[in-house]
Design a protein around this nucleic acid. Sequence first.
DNA 1: GTTTAGCACTCACAAGCTTAGAGTGCTAAA
DNA 2: TTTAGCACTCTAAGCTTGTGAGTGCTAAAC
Lengths: 354, 354
Amino acid sequence: MMPPLSERQKRILLLVVREYIESGQPVASQALVRRYHLEFSPATVRNEMAALSEMGYLRQPHTSAGRVPTEEGYRFFVTHLMNQVELPEELQHTITHQFYQSKADVDEWMQLAATILAHQTRAVSLVTAPHPEQVRFKHVELISTQGRQVLMVLVIEGGEVSQQVLALSEPVTQERLSQVAQRLNQALRGLTLEAILAQPRRSDALEQDIFTLIVQDLRRIAEQPAGEVYFDGLTNVLEAPEFIESEELRHALRLLEERTLLKNLLARTVEQSHIGGLQVIIGSDAGWEELRQCSMVLARYGVPGMLTGALGVLGPMRMSYARTIPTVRFMADLLSNLFNEQFTAPTPPSQDAR
Amino acid sequence: MMPPLSERQKRILLLVVREYIESGQPVASQALVRRYHLEFSPATVRNEMAALSEMGYLRQPHTSAGRVPTEEGYRFFVTHLMNQVELPEELQHTITHQFYQSKADVDEWMQLAATILAHQTRAVSLVTAPHPEQVRFKHVELISTQGRQVLMVLVIEGGEVSQQVLALSEPVTQERLSQVAQRLNQALRGLTLEAILAQPRRSDALEQDIFTLIVQDLRRIAEQPAGEVYFDGLTNVLEAPEFIESEELRHALRLLEERTLLKNLLARTVEQSHIGGLQVIIGSDAGWEELRQCSMVLARYGVPGMLTGALGVLGPMRMSYARTIPTVRFMADLLSNLFNEQFTAPTPPSQDAR
DNA sequence: GTTTAGCACTCACAAGCTTAGAGTGCTAAA
DNA sequence: TTTAGCACTCTAAGCTTGTGAGTGCTAAAC
């Protein structure tokens, strides 16, 4: 439907998008020529700009103002115009270092990833904890706390831990609880939820009770679209003068409160892209009304077949894709590697129990 | 230093604060008289207002504008003028119900408390998970995950759980891990950090390694001023037109990112007030520069001698204290009761293992 | 002595007007 | 096909003015 862009048009579009991302002001033909020492005149630029507007890549806030990219303009920029660079080596090292220095704690990794992502991109970062692709029972522990209160710690393959306090109908000794836990551990270890459902009823009443609770909990975990969501960098976005103008960004931030919505959004990313793949959502691209005027850069990370999570950045449409995209990509790779090492590499030679 | 306020002055101050909290506009003498059918004239009100301004309870944004409460004005209002009401019974029931309906999961309780608090007060809510007053070892569990990777789950008295992934220097079987865990459990159960430090060195190398890690982890927990911080209601405050004006609120929100700062702030509340006690911080009351133009209503909850946490609300100085204070108080009591039941009541008759 | 009516005065705010300047679209010439 | 030139458009900032809300003060009333 669209005539292909000439090289010069591409070049101008590129410059307009870059310039606008940097300044936030509508871009004028003269300014472009002067700033980039173009070998043709403002008038020519204007003609090309008019053509680009015609094609829907640029628009004018009002007659006699400079040009601003449309959603389409940004998309074209991201997919065809931007030169994809890697994060500077030094920065890569610094970031990697921080992860290997922190203790091998998933929670801490997630927090760190969110913080770094937010800081590097100056936008709101989002990271979901990795979620197993299929829930498998690993271990259960029952700890009597007080009277009839029992703490149940349920571990699933992949390392996710769920804890829950139960109130039994009558007090039970720790020995008895340990016994029950041991029997269940032997019977269920490594089984998927389906396999567990196929198990026979327990003869022991307490064991059966716990069994039921385990099933409930596993089901709950399996149904969740993603793990815990971490985010950071709210202030980045609150500080932007942009924020005041754009009513919209505020709407988008509401997503952060609605954890369920957020999880769904991120879960979709997981579905739609492969590990290492990157997804750029510009504006209300995909039916998320909340995202008008905003963009997200998302990536999936994890260990294929084992567990996956998503991470990314939410910011104004006018964000620096050139900085954001490599950062998100690098971070996804980094986390993928970390989890790979943790769960599949048999004996990495570097680390130690400190 | 200050002459005591006459009854009429108190009355006028009360009305000005109420009115301003409601409208956000400077309060005029005429408007007061008309709206509350005062039995004296605007001129009289003006005289009294002038006196109150003199004393530092009110101020004028500019000559010939109505009056606005100063920080002192709010403080006087909160401590002497406000009639302390309880939350409506019905609301109390509704809220209580929600808690008893959710499963007895600390994480879920905290989340719920934050959500309800934010919703009821239309401000940003803050809740810290309860933190033990003294750290006592309860239980350790070692679960082999993959190769040399071991998941350590550490439970301390009071129910807090800390999990951590360790990389051992060589692979170890699950049986061996269970053995070690069992020995440590027997030796350390119920001991405080000090008592554990007085323990002799383990002869078994692996056991000693784990022992060291446990000590490290306990120390980390003991040093933390408070448990995990939950919050909710960001959008409440983003939506207020107030927010745009007040640069300050934005600053205050930065606290939410700086979890450490936030924890300290909340920890101070824990120190300074007894359980059930309430603390109202108005403006830069207490040296927290970030809180200019903001107020916090905080309360401590918990089980005396066992564990405590803090919870409360952060909002613009011009918040509805009459609504906020009872809500925070009620919520603190509710959580206190919940944890009391969970950890001390031997056999509450109501609940069941479902 | 206290209260209040009356009035002059102050100030913010909105509306209307003007000007400056940035930037365009178009046309005609190169 | 490119570009110089020019008329035209639109915004933003500054200025003036009018309006109304609200005060402080004074002198009279209670």
